[in-house]
Design a binder for these strands. Structure first.
Lengths: 251, 251
DNA sequence: TACTGTATCGAACAATGTTCGGAGTTCTAG
DNA sequence: CTAGAACTCCGAACATTGTTCGATACAGTA
């Protein structure tokens, strides 16, 4: 009951993702396809952001009335689930890459990062709700497991490693979208001026130093740093540390 | 220009976060404080999710008219920035923990994870926009840097390690909110039934096996796995790997 | 005691997702 | 070939959202 905005839309999304196109029945021939709608929707989201993707702008882009959309898609939440799975499908297939499993993992990480940076709304959708397991997500996961199968790790660790790398990429992408948000055209001078004025730099000397040195804003270097450490940690087969730290939390 | 929904609200949020409370001027005494509003807003978000937090529900909860809120807060986006920074401030102060820097990093990771799981809307806000650098975020960052100062790592690596752990936690939390979304009361039988029916398990043997074994759904174990690997990788001072993989991307 | 500037808030406005009802279109049953 | 059924399309309407306006009440100041 934590996410109030899901009145069974997840299930409807799944039916859309997997269900067959409802083919030719009686009435007039359909002027659109689900594919065309999803494509146009993703394009609008790319240009205007998720908020700019309204049923009206989408209908107008496609040259149809708003109500028409509802004969193809049950509602906006389901539409969002569709463009998310479609975008996932546009990434690389991990097991088609070259190199050993560690190289491939790294390449997947960079490719996925780029995807998230180009489509920040994917992260918004992922944060709003766990993604429906559509065909593309499933295929990506299976492909990822094929890569991990080469690692010689136990099956549980294969999954854990996969999830860890994927999680890391998403989390870092979250922090890196910052750059895109400012417009890409140079730093936000107004904001920086505000910081300079209102922040007590004396009281935060370490932050001041780190900020000055540029270390904080060099997201790409930070991403590379953490990724290599994570991969190295996974590849090291020696036992790591006390894995138990689960006092707090649920059952 | 990627995020269309920000018409300078970031700056207004910063002013709110750092600016002094506008004190007693002339008119009637103010019946509310920014603090009380933010507290009530976060509570509503906890119960009803971010979508349930409307200006009307908030006003009603506080027993005031809707328009009154706008004398305390410029608008909803700024309100969201406030509850985010406030929530960040409710986590632990990293440098008040015990143990060496690696232990502390681990404790911070678990504490932050718990915070994100209890307040999934924090992740939604982080995904929608990079957080405004409010007092609490700044304090947390400074505290984190104090912890990292013990590591003996170069300053750049300190920042990178900090960002990596933080990013990892957020990314994994993204995947783990799944549990909360189903309501917590057992697995989603309807959804699982759909999966069983419509997915071609033969074509995805590895996923089928991983799913069957429960490895995929054991998020807490996966989190621990990756965290230990990441920490171990950071602690290992030997050089790691080719850090250059930056053909694609921007300048 | 008047004046000024503020706080409060009911009402209205624009934009959004969604539904309703009717008009047109195509297939199918007889 | 015709009549009905089932479907597509969509203008209009509805509920809900964030936000603004204008009036009214209040508290300091001169």
């Amino acid at each position: 009951m934590s996410n109030a905005s899901d009145g069974g839309s997840q299930l409807r999304a799944l039916r859309l993702l997997w269900g067959p196109a409802p083919g030719g029945g009686r009435g007039p021939r359909r002027g659109l396809t689900q594919g065309r709608i999803v494509e146009a929707a993703a394009e609008i989201a790319d240009r205007q952001g998720l908020d700019g993707l309204t049923m009206r702008t989408l209908a107008s882009e496609l040259g149809v009335g708003v109500a028409t959309l509802y004969t193809y898609v049950p509602g906006r939440p389901e539409l969002l689930a569709l463009i998310l799975d479609q975008s996932i499908g546009q990434g690389v297939q991990p097991d088609e890459l070259s190199g050993d499993w560690r190289d491939r993992l790294r390449q997947v990480a960079y490719a996925d990062l780029q995807g998230y940076l180009q489509r920040p709304w994917m992260l918004q959708l992922l944060a709003a709700q766990p993604p429906a397991l559509g065909p593309n997500l499933l295929a990506w996961y299976e492909s990822m497991l094929r890569v991990m199968a080469d690692s010689g790790l136990p099956i549980d660790d294969q999954v854990a490693a996969l999830e860890a790398v994927d999680g890391y990429v998403r989390g870092m992408a979250l922090a890196m979208t910052e750059d895109a948000a400012t417009g890409g055209a140079g730093p936000d001078t107004e904001r920086d001026a505000f910081y300079a004025d209102h922040i007590d730099w004396q009281a935060h000397p370490l932050f001041a130093a780190a900020s000055e040195s540029g270390a904080i804003s060099d997201h790409r270097a930070n991403f590379a740093f953490g990724l290599e450490r994570l991969l190295a940690g996974i590849a090291a087969d020696d036992d790591v540390a006390p894995t138990g730290d689960f006092r707090a939390g649920n059952k």
